[in-house]
């Protein structure tokens, strides 16, 4: 495309935008809403993922010993095991004290001291990494004298499962919203095409190439898509920054710490910008296609 064609395309594209300003604004608004929701879902997914990883990383395996087993033998095996990062021995007396603190009512455990203590001795074991927790727990269960080794796998499993389905649901909803936005772009651009139908027809008779005819409409769609996405990313970025700052200040718990690493956040915003621009472009191409058949 040469300079005069480019100039023509730019002029016509922006003229069309000005002519359909309100419709273009509404379309950009809907794109902004759908992409902000999609971006919100993605940010949520990133944060839930990080939360799960934090939980998994901090998982401890509670190793309950059988009655009368020598803790030193277990301790030796734990020391030698390659997947063990560290461990703490909790004798049953200390276990009872901790249990009483958890319940908040020491009187409830009256009469359970000494011989009557129902709790077993236990080790709290930490694995080298989150991925090794399950394997290490299985290995420890096979140690002689170990009654069970538990790290809350049911809870983690349920969390992973809920997150999995939640992610899919949210992605599906975002996809539908994005599709709706594309249809809206198609409608908006089609109105522009219809408004300039005579011109398009004349252009074909004058020997204009399809790309020449398509360019102003493509530009219009891309500008609408890009504007919508820009609004979405700015709003989402500001909102997320405020939320992240307030959560960090609250310091709720160690695992609800919002993701602020630019390497994880920026690809989401970059992807949204690309997606919005693509939506605009694809919508335009679909709209114009029918009118190019002369």
């Amino acid at each position: 495309m040469n300079m005069s064609a480019l100039r023509y395309g730019l002029r016509q594209g922006f003229l069309s935008l000005r002519r359909n300003l309100w419709l273009a604004a509404v379309t950009a608004g809907i794109i902004a809403i759908s992409l902000a929701i999609l971006g919100g879902f993605l940010l949520l997914a990133v944060n839930v993922g990080q939360m799960l990883r934090t939980i998994e990383t901090n998982l401890e395996i509670a190793v309950f010993l059988e009655e009368g087993v020598d803790p030193a033998a277990i301790s030796r095996q734990l020391t030698e095991h390659a997947l063990v990062q560290g461990y703490v021995f909790v004798p049953k007396e200390q276990g009872l004290v901790e249990f009483a603190q958890t319940l908040g009512d020491p009187a409830f455990l009256a009469g359970m001291e000494g011989e009557n203590n129902p709790l077993p001795d236990l080790f709290r074991v930490r694995a080298n990494d989150a991925q090794s927790v399950a394997a290490l727990a299985a290995a420890i269960r096979a140690f002689p004298g170990v009654e069970t080794a538990d790290y809350g796998e049911e809870l983690v499993g349920r969390l992973i499962s809920v997150t999995y389905w939640l992610n899919r649901l949210l992605l599906g909803m975002s996809g539908l919203l994005a599709l709706g936005a594309v249809f809206l772009i198609v409608t908006t651009i089609r109105l522009s095409v219809v408004a300039r139908q005579d011109e398009v027809g004349v252009m074909k008779y004058l020997g204009a190439s399809n790309s020449f005819i398509r360019f102003p409409f493509l530009l219009e769609g891309v500008v609408i898509g890009w504007t919508g996405t820009l609004v979405a990313t700015i709003a989402l970025g500001l909102g997320y920054e405020r939320l992240a700052t307030s959560l960090q200040q609250e310091a709720l718990t160690f695992f609800i710490r919002p993701v602020t690493d630019p390497a994880m956040i920026l690809p989401i915003f970059g992807g949204l910008l690309l997606l919005g621009t693509l939506m605009g472009g694809i919508g335009s191409i679909v709209s114009v296609r029918k009118f190019l058949r002369v």
């Binding site: 005069s4 064609a5 005579d198 011109e199 004058l206 020997g207 204009a208």
Partner: peptide, 24 residues
């Protein structure tokens, strides 16, 4: 005729060259 009513006489004729990418 199929003239573009929003364009002047000059622009209508120039359009034939614009759309095929002739230089200004």
């Amino acid at each position: 005729y199929r003239l573009l009513k929003q364009k002047t006489v000059y622009e209508n004729v120039a359009f034939a060259l614009e759309v095929i990418g002739r230089p200004a």
